[in-house]
């Protein structure tokens, strides 16, 4: 049993170190000068004036660089961040609103073919973006939605609907029907009961769903790359654009930008950590 305990702790220790190392390196790199980032002495100690070959003088230049146009890009990083934020927030609100209504319908009414509909909704999630993006592009050109925020907002709303419906159905199923029935007896209409009873009761579920929709929209790359490559460019597409000049990538600036763009995700993940499992399994596992 002792051997097993040693094995257990070393597995945890080694894996945790390996998993955290890239994130730590990201943090360190964001405070380096470009020369230190690609130095042949691995710089890991943020100590100015130290004699160690592995020490470097921390600087905020990487973060300051986010305000200017980076190499190979015309605009400051913040403009891409703003695009991501607009598209992420709007599509999330739309997906959660539509998804909650839809989930309520499936949870409380008998709908012909409900199971088939729910599986159809889930199956849309399996569609690889690259397999449907060409006709979407043709369609968006006609409707002048290419390179607009609205185009991606629409697409991400639809893309996230499957998750929103499945997650919200789980949450709404857990709200006792007696609450609404009491309200209906009191003379509320169905719509009133939904707005005044269900929506407040499902607040946690809606928040969790919103976080997962926001993360998916924030990280999405395939649609964004092919539809919004001139205007309304999002953060992942901006970073990917830097990959062409890999030797000359301004690493500290990239690290600073990556860190700033993943920070909201980290915060949101921590906030909903108890519902993480539910979110990543489309609500099929409830804990």
């Amino acid at each position: 049993m002792r051997g097993l305990a040693v094995l257990r702790w070393s597995l945890l220790g080694v894996y945790a170190a390996l998993a955290a190392a890239p994130l730590l390196l990201l943090l360190l790199t964001s405070f380096k000068s470009p020369a230190d980032a690609t130095s042949l002495d691995l710089k890991v100690l943020p100590l100015a004036g130290s004699a160690s070959p592995h020490a470097f003088a921390p600087t905020l230049d990487g973060y300051a660089g986010l305000a200017g146009g980076g190499e190979g890009t015309a605009q400051p990083f913040w403009s891409y961040f703003l695009s991501s934020a607009i598209i992420g927030v709007c599509s999330t609100i739309a997906a959660v609103a539509l998804g909650t209504c839809c989930a309520y319908g499936f949870s409380r009414f008998r709908i012909a073919g409900a199971k088939d509909w729910l599986f159809f909704i889930l199956s849309t999630r399996f569609m690889p973006p690259l397999a449907v993006v060409a006709p979407v592009l043709v369609m968006y050109r006609q409707m002048e939605l290419q390179n607009t925020h609205l185009g991606l907002i629409l697409l991400y709303t639809v893309f996230n609907l499957s998750l929103a419906v499945w997650l919200m159905k789980g949450f709404i199923d857990e709200i006792p029907k007696a609450y609404e029935e009491a309200a209906l007896v009191d003379g509320y209409s169905r719509i009133q009961a939904f707005v005044r009873i269900i929506v407040p009761q499902a607040r946690t579920g809606m928040a969790v769903t919103a976080v997962f929709c926001l993360i998916a929209a924030w990280n999405e790359y395939g649609f964004a790359l092919t539809l919004n490559n001139q205007r309304g460019v999002t953060v992942p597409v901006y970073f990917a654009g830097l990959q062409g000049n890999i030797s000359g990538v301004p690493w500290p600036q990239v690290a600073a930008g990556v860190l700033v763009s993943v920070l909201p995700i980290m915060v949101f993940t921590l906030l909903i950590r108890r519902h993480l499992l539910r979110g990543v399994t489309f609500g099929t596992i409830k804990q």
């Binding site: 894996y15 945790a16 998993a19 955290a20 890239p22 994130l23 390196l25 990201l26 790199t29 980032a37 690609t38 130095s39 042949l40 993360i215 924030w218 990280n219 790359y221 953060v235 992942p236 597409v237 970073f239 990917a240 830097l242 990959q243 890999i246 990538v249 690493w251 990239v254 690290a255 990556v258 763009s261 993943v262 995700i265 980290m266 993940t269 921590l270 950590r273 993480l276 990543v280």
Partner: peptide, 26 residues
Amino acid sequence: AVLLLPMMLSPAVMGLFWNLILEGTY
């Protein structure tokens, strides 16, 4: 929390940063 973080991050963005980690010389 530390172990779970990577799966919430953007593959496109983290993929770019991994290029630095995996670079041959530096």
